[in-house]
Structure formats: C-alpha cells, structure tokens
C-alpha cells in the first residue's frame, strides 16, 4: 500500500507513516537537518527541517518533516519564504549558542545567509554542543547510558552523571561519531583513546596491527554476541576480508 503526496509540486509515493523527510530525500528534495540520524530517528529537537503542509482536508500547518508522517493528499512545501525565515532564526539561535560548532551547522548558516552573530547572546564562546541529544540517545540504545542530559529549560546540558568521568563508558566513541557538530572530544594517540576524561587502551588488530577498539568495548561486544563466531581479535575491515576469503 502506498500513499500519494506532493512535495514542492513533485508527485511522490510513500509508505503510509513514512516520514516526509525520508520521502523528500528519496525524491531528491533536500531538507536541512541537524538532529536527524537514520539509526536514531525521532529526536525532532533542532526544528531545522520545518516545512509547510496542507492536509487533504485543507488545513494548513508548519511541522517538522523528520517526524511528520506521509499521508494521502498531503501537500508539502519545503522551501517557502516562511520556511526559510524560520530556518534562519533557528540557525541564528544555534549559531549563537554554539559559535564553535563544526560541520553542517556553519555550512547551513552560510547557505541561509546567517552571518553577523550577535555575540551579546552567546553564553559560552567555546561551545560546540547544540543539544541535539543524539549522543545520549546512541549511548542509551547501546545499553550503556553513560552520559545523559541533565537539568531542564535553558540550563539543559549533556554530561556524565555527577559530572565525573562516566563509570559506564566503554570508550566506544559512538557518541562522538553521531555528534553533528564535533562537540565531543575523542582522541586516539599512542594506542590510547581519551574520551569523557577517561583513558582507554586501544587493542591492535591481530592481522593488520592497527589499533581499533578498546578492551572494554570488546568485552561488551563479547557479552552481547555470545553465540556468534565473530573473531574479535581482528578489526572490522580485516574481519570482512577474512570472511570473503573463507567464502571463496
């Protein structure tokens, strides 16, 4: 079963309930996002992906495309003057919050002509975090919940419990990987990974010799993958090559 909707005048097909953002991207319509991650859907907090919609019933609204479900007869406008204006304000707010953010945020700012940060509103000139929550969600999905968002309102922040190096952290760096703004410091040097003020020894791949994972991460994997034949002594890329060899 599919539903038919229009995105910027383009007829699109979607599975019912599929999010408008995904349908748009499948059809080559670009919508900017910061807190969206395919594996960790549903954050819906940056609000950058706003679009205007008109339902089949004629009612109009402004919604975020990353969580709005596709419906029969829906008309979506992803780039109207109002949408662009809302995005500019969101980008300005974020740029001011996190002046040192890397990656997509400064790129979007440029695209949308958001310049001239009014630094009166900057609380922390070194801030990179936009509080998208992807890091804490990734950590929670892996079952560790080593970091969390604490406090509410304008004081909300991401931090390990009690602001101490987090006991539950296994050094897997998933949080740093999903972070869209490079806000989580993670450094691998001389066989040691430093993240959240904790140091982890990096184990070397028995085949290629490259450091690839922390001991804690492998122990964690082992516990969860009891029955698999995965050889955890090798890094993922060597493991891939080996299974290919085994097959041929």
């Amino acid at each position: 079963m599919t539903v038919n909707l229009m995105i910027d005048g383009l007829a699109c097909e979607a599975a019912p309930g599929q999010h408008v953002l995904d349908v748009a991207r499948q059809n080559g319509v670009e919508i900017p996002t910061l807190c969206h991650h395919e594996a960790l859907a549903g954050q819906a907090c940056c609000r950058l992906c706003v679009v205007e919609i008109e339902e089949a019933s004629g009612s109009r609204d402004v919604v975020v495309s990353c969580t709005y479900p596709a419906k029969e007869g829906l008309k979506v406008s992803t780039n109207s003057e109002q949408v662009r204006r809302l995005r500019r304000t969101v980008l300005t707010l974020l740029a001011e919050r996190a002046p040192l953010a890397e990656g997509a945020l400064p790129a979007y700012c440029q695209e949308y002509g958001v310049t001239g940060y009014d630094l009166r509103f900057t609380v922390d000139k070194d801030e990179k975090c936009i509080l998208c929550g992807l890091c804490t969600k990734a950590c929670a999905e892996l079952g560790n919940s080593a970091i969390e968002t604490t406090l509410r309102g304008v004081d909300k922040q991401v931090a390990p419990p009690f602001d101490e190096p987090p006991a539950a952290c296994i050094g897997c760096a998933s949080c740093a990987e999903v972070c869209p703004t490079g806000a989580i410091a993670c450094e691998d040097a001389d066989g040691v990974r430093t993240i959240w003020e904790k140091e982890f020894e990096l184990l070397r791949c028995e085949a290629c010799g490259k450091p690839f994972a922390t001991a804690e991460e492998l122990a964690w994997l082992k516990e969860r993958l009891l029955d698999t034949e995965l050889n955890l002594a090798y890094c993922p890329s060597c493991r891939g090559k080996m299974s290919l060899k085994d097959l041929t």
């Binding site: 819906a44 907090c45 940056c46 609000r47 950058l48 304000t89 969101v90 707010l93 974020l94 001011e96 919050r97 009166r120 509103f121 609380v123 936009i130 509080l131 929550g133 968002t149 406090l151 509410r152 309102g153 304008v154 004081d155 909300k156």
Partner: peptide
C-alpha cells in the same frame, strides 16, 4: 518562569526563551 520550566529539548523554545529573557 518559562525559561526555567520548559523541558529544554527543542531549539526554538529553549534558545528562544533564553534570548527573549536576555
């Protein structure tokens, strides 16, 4: 009041209230 009491999850509300207050 609202800046303290909102959940702080989404940008327009959290950052918007911070600016308004400022």
């Amino acid at each position: 009041f609202l800046a303290r009491e909102c959940c702080g999850k989404c940008v327009p509300c959290r950052e918007g209230l911070r600016w308004l207050l400022d």
